[in-house]
Nucleic acid binder design. Structure first.
Length: 159
DNA sequence: GCCAACGTTGGC
DNA sequence: GCCAACGTTGGC
């Protein structure tokens, strides 16, 4: 089975890498995605896939660490929760609209890799994140891109 | 806080 | 099915 690579964005105030590391059992449902393209990509994810964890709305925005997909997409429960800010009254429980994978922290990078660093590396020119305002919160990456970002971050710190 | 990009909605 | 209005994202 071929492993795939991804980049997943979150605002650290809402859900950052530290939350993930501190989470019970160190795994967490990646809920709240309300974009069809991102949803479709998440449904392609397989157990064992790896993802770069990107912190947005920070100065500078940056890649912080690496996650592993530990469970394939299941219906996102927040879409059926009227109390949730992600509540979607239009979603049919028999045919849920929104799905979420479960992720686990693998390790932080030894040093963060900023968006400017990503943009400055010609090897990463095809990554969506470095292209003009590509806001998609879940993006595919190649293994070469994934490895390059980790190399730029000085490798993975021991958890 | 601003605003460009861009996805979604809804009138026609 | 078009497209203007609107809302959100996210870098700056």
């Amino acid at each position: 089975m071929k492993r795939h690579y991804w980049l997943m964005k979150s605002e650290p105030d809402v859900f950052g890498y530290e939350h993930l590391v501190a989470a019970p059992g160190q795994s967490e449902l990646w809920d709240g995605v309300r974009n069809y393209q991102a949803r479709n990509l998440m449904r392609e994810m397989k157990v064992g896939d790896r993802a770069l964890f990107y912190h947005s709305s920070t100065r500078p925005p940056h890649v912080f660490g690496v996650m592993e997909i530990v469970r394939e997409a299941v219906p996102d429960p927040t879409q059926f929760d009227p109390e949730s800010s992600h509540y979607d009254p239009g979603s049919d429980p028999d045919d849920p609209r929104w799905w979420a994978v479960t992720v686990r922290a693998l390790a932080p990078l030894k040093k963060i890799v900023s968006l400017d660093d990503l943009k400055a590396n010609p090897k990463l020119a095809d990554m969506r994140i470095v292209q003009r305002n590509q806001r998609l919160s879940i993006q595919p990456a190649t293994r070469a891109e994934f490895d390059e970002v980790i190399r730029m971050g000085g490798g993975l710190a021991k958890p």
